[in-house]
């Protein structure tokens, strides 16, 4: 049984991926944090997708398993200097969105099961490596939200 913290992040990741994949049944964001995350991470994604494209083209993102491996490798590199900040946390969501779109472009059918797997490995990474930092830096409501809301 996952912790309530895990379920909270899982629902943020799921909501962001649904938003990025433009799922037709998508309603309004289920919370303020989810709403701000949709806006700020997708803005960042639009801004950087083209810049990252030459690097991404070298990666073989053709299955959910490959996406998981690449995600872990990229994250390990991103955080190997030991620094964490809310901007970098935002890039975790952004990169999850980029990977999901890439899978779609490679004609990988993003079934409900596949999307759950992707949301799961992203959440697992955040919970296993960033939960303490997030908690020590105000959490989603008091750390993330004041920084990115209405900006």
């Amino acid at each position: 049984m996952e912790s309530s913290e895990f379920r909270y992040v899982y629902y943020l990741v799921q909501d962001y991926l649904k938003y990025i994949l433009q799922e037709p049944e998508l309603g309004p964001a289920p919370s303020r944090v989810a709403h701000v995350l949709r806006n700020s991470a997708s803005f960042l994604q639009k801004e950087n997708e083209e810049i990252l494209k030459p690097c991404l083209d070298t990666l073989d993102i053709t299955s959910v398993d490959a996406a998981r491996r690449i995600f872990i490798q990229v994250m390990d590199k991103e955080f190997d200097d030991g620094n964490t900040n809310w901007g970098r946390i935002l890039t975790i969501f952004m990169f999850g969105g980029i990977l999901s779109k890439r899978l779609q472009e490679h004609k990988v059918q993003l079934t409900g099961d596949n999307k759950e797997q992707i949301s799961y490995f992203i959440t697992e990474y955040i919970i296993n490596t960033k939960a303490e930092w997030i908690d020590a830096n105000g959490g989603w409501e008091n750390g993330f939200l004041p920084m990115f809301e209405e900006k």
Partner: peptide, 20 residues
């Protein structure tokens, strides 16, 4: 490679962190 993407993401994250 994944290392290049990781390094780029760190820079993008640090940049957005400074801007906000």
């Amino acid at each position: 490679t994944s290392s290049q993407v990781g390094r780029r993401l760190a820079l993008i994250g640090d940049d957005i962190n400074m801007r906000y």
